[in-house]
Design a protein around this nucleic acid. Structure first.
Length: 760
DNA sequence: GAGCACTGC
């Protein structure tokens, strides 16, 4: 089955890979030295090229079709052969899907499963009676781009038959039948429509990523599916009542099988069909979770990637990465290099090192250009990775995980993978999250190497021996097992799941983590001592799309008459960092920041930034014929070292949250210059984040007892107030130094408040 | 005087 560019289909492709590998199976000793990276010392790096570890060889799913076929996903025009395959696949899939309520589809990148399968379903009558096919994605950008693509393929306007819905953007209409959305958004929808009654099919895409949202959604979908199929079989009404606004309220939990999901009255709902799509490895997990659901495999169009391992373990992966970059540069054919590093600091130091090494090379060998990308980089600078290198130059991209899934950079032929990643971890005893550098999983390593085979055959250099690869976990630990669960639990409670310990998670978080978050929610007043959602506080908190602490701060702020300020503070705290401090212009950036600094703390500093920017926008809007306000703001941001994207995000959140609190009937008033009121309110909401100064000048966090210090970027770094409220812990590589991120000077009154709350 | 991966509502 020939496909484009003469590559074989996956089955053949694998053989092809192995054939190529076997030629190079032996160790490839590199005798050439790399003058550039090593200076006068001669060093060489030895590589071993084993058989390519494909997803297939690791796949443990039993129910895989014997004759997998390929979807023509990347093409606009199909050959007769392609169409034949397409029809065959379509028939096969539909037959299976009609028989089973859950189908698992395993498909590699570029298999077209995301674009094609919803169209098959729509054509086959799954949108009858005005029902919709919902397709969820973990990321906003994916939901938008896929929807655009499918609308184009269907020849319809986006927002008509095919549409998408993400936070702040709803491009759907009453005629939308295929709806792409983020998984978090579908969870929010479920709060208003617990049966997901408008959907006949839900497709959960990229399920292998196992984000918190995906995991909670899978649990919810399983429940909804049970209820809906039960409803069809046993159409008896269980006690329920309707609220005055027409929504259905639960009366009591009469059916333990259904749990507390509310029964539906008077509406005929067809069974909910589910498709779980995963890239690899984990199909068996989903299959087991959904009672042995069948899995089908569709093939992607990845080009072969040769994987090389180091012969010996590397002591310093940064140095190793630099050596490898120069080795590729001097020995390999043209093609861009993508190197995965763990964070901004590493990226900046490696870039500096590369430039220094380049200076030592003869002029004609300096044809290398570095670009960097990480999430906090302003978007204009992020865009630089897409620009092709000057003619005759090789582009080296130094990236964080952002390049693993979120951003696809064209032209990559070589990938360098040190085998580590910075990941969130959670200590349920202290209730503290931190970021630590850990080994990647096998799945992650495969995902990274795949980045070299998007446009043609590539090579991946793993900076560790093959024996180390074998020791890696198959897949990354699901996020739900390494984060604070307060938000998840509040959502589940609002969805009517009372027994959190008994909830059918695909992988259950630890008992300690659940307990810790339940305690936090009780302290915040969201749950009663009987672990019921409190009314109105808990219900209101669940409605707000924010961290529970922020929601509580808003509710309190209406009582403290400073909701205007708190709305801004919460919006600004919810976004990625507002201030941008590039290494080369550190002093300028700090001077700029001083203009906004408030002696009372970082919260008020953030409010100052927000208000100044809004004033600027308003002023420009009233001046006709001048430059566009957005453009002016962008310039202003640049001058003041503020991340425009973060600020815009904060404006979006602000207006969304404002709408919510208005609907709740909360009173939005400003405390004006009386910032004491605002600070007291902060103390009342963030009492779990209070710290007191110790005689030695360090601080002790009251709730955890942890010794902490004020983060040097804080405006309070020098002042050393007696008592502060911080926003979050930042755990750094140095174990003893923990610091606070956002903090607030509070007076003695607020201390009293804090003690009051803590001693409750 | 230190330095925060990536998402999402």
């Amino acid at each position: 089955m020939p496909l484009r560019n003469g590559t074989a289909t996956s089955g053949d492709q694998e053989k092809h890979r192995n054939d190529t590998c076997s030629d190079q199976e032996l160790q490839r000793s590199r005798t050439e030295t790399n003058q550039a990276s090593t200076g006068s010392v001669q060093r060489c790096r030895q590589w071993r090229n084993p058989r390519y570890p494909t997803a297939t060889s690791l796949l443990r799913t039993t129910e895989i079709t014997t004759n997998p076929v390929s979807l023509p996903g990347e093409k606009r025009f199909w050959s007769i052969g392609d169409l034949f395959l397409l029809l065959r696949l379509r028939e096969d899939l539909l037959k299976r899907f009609k028989k089973h309520d859950v189908l698992i589809i395993v498909g590699e990148t570029g298999s077209g499963k995301t674009t094609q399968i919803p169209q098959f379903l729509s054509d086959s009558g799954f949108c009858r009676d005005g029902k919709t096919i919902g397709v969820t994605q973990p990321r906003r950008v994916a939901a938008v781009t896929v929807a655009k693509r499918v609308a184009e393929e269907c020849g319809v306007d986006l927002g008509q038959k095919v549409g998408y819905s993400i936070r702040f953007e709803d491009v759907t209409s009453s005629s939308t039948r295929i709806k792409y959305m983020t998984d978090g958004l579908l969870l929010r929808e479920a709060l208003l429509d617990p049966y997901l009654s408008r959907y006949s099919v839900i497709v959960v895409d990229e399920a292998h990523e196992r984000t918190v949202h995906t995991d909670v959604l899978l649990g919810l979908l399983k429940k909804v599916q049970n209820v809906r199929s039960k409803y069809v079989k046993d159409h008896t009404s269980i006690g329920h009542k309707r609220a005055s606004n027409g929504t259905i309220l639960e009366k009591e939990n009469t059916d333990p099988c259904i749990g507390v999901l509310k029964q539906c009255q008077g509406r005929k709902l067809p069974p909910l069909k589910l498709i779980i799509m995963s890239a690899s490895l984990d199909a068996h997990v989903f299959s087991e979770y959904f009672g042995g659901a069948k899995a089908v495999r569709v093939l992607g169009r990845q080009f072969p990637v040769d994987v090389f391992y180091t012969v010996d373990p590397q002591t310093d992966y940064l140095d190793s990465a630099i050596v490898t970059i120069f080795q590729i540069h001097s020995e390999e054919a043209p093609g861009d290099i993508l190197a995965f590093l763990t964070g901004q600091e590493e990226i900046e130091s490696v870039e500096k090192q590369i430039h220094e090494n380049l200076q030592r090379l003869p002029e004609e060998k300096r044809n290398m250009k570095t670009v960097t990308i990480f999430s906090s980089l302003p978007s204009e600078q992020q865009m630089r990775v897409f620009a092709p290198a000057p003619a005759g130059f090789r582009k080296v991209i130094l990236a964080t995980n952002i390049a693993e899934t979120s951003v696809t950079i064209p032209g990559i032929k070589y990938v360098i993978d040190p085998g580590v990643v910075k990941a969130r971890s959670y200590d349920p005893v202290k209730g503290m999250e931190s970021l630590i550098i850990v080994p990647t999983s096998k799945a992650q390593a495969i995902q990274r190497s795949g980045r070299a085979g998007r446009e043609g055959p590539g090579k991946c250099f793993r900076l560790y021996p093959e024996s180390e690869y074998e020791k890696l976990e198959d897949s990354t630990k699901p996020e739900i097992k390494r984060c604070n669960l307060s938000n998840v639990i509040l959502q589940l409670k609002a969805l009517g799941v009372d027994d959190i310990f008994g909830f059918d998670f695909i992988e259950k978080p630890s008992r300690a983590a659940i307990k810790k978050s339940l305690e936090e929610l009780i302290l915040l007043g969201a749950l009663t001592d009987e672990l019921k959602l409190s009314d109105p506080v808990g219900r209101r908190m669940a409605r707000l799309p924010l961290d529970p602490v922020y929601s509580k701060a808003l509710i309190l702020a209406s009582q403290f008459k400073c909701l205007d300020e708190m709305l801004i503070a919460v919006a600004m705290l919810s976004v990625e960092s507002i201030f941008y401090e590039p290494r080369e212009k550190l002093d300028e950036a700090r001077t700029a920041k001083k203009c906004f600094a408030s002696s009372e703390g970082d919260h008020l500093t953030l409010i100052n930034v927000y208000r100044t920017s809004i004033e600027l926008l308003e002023k420009r809007k009233s001046e006709v014929g001048k430059e566009k306000p957005e453009k002016i703001l962008r310039k202003w941001c640049k001058e003041n070292f503020i991340n425009n994207r973060s600020l815009r995000h904060a404006r979006d959140i602000h207006s969304q949250i404002r709408r919510h609190v208005e609907q709740m009937g909360l009173c939005i008033s400003s405390c004006g210059d009386d910032t004491l009121q605002f600070r007291r309110c902060l103390a009342a909401a963030f009492f779990l984040n209070a710290a007191l100064k110790q005689p030695d000048g360090t601080y002790r966090a009251l709730a955890s007892g942890e010794v902490v210090q004020i983060h040097p970027t804080s405006v309070l770094f020098r002042t050393k107030a007696d008592c502060i409220i911080f926003n979050e812990f930042v755990k750094t590589t140095n174990k003893t130094s923990m610091s606070t991120n956002s903090k607030l000077l509070v007076d003695s009154h607020s201390q009293v408040d804090i003690y009051c709350f803590l001693s409750r």
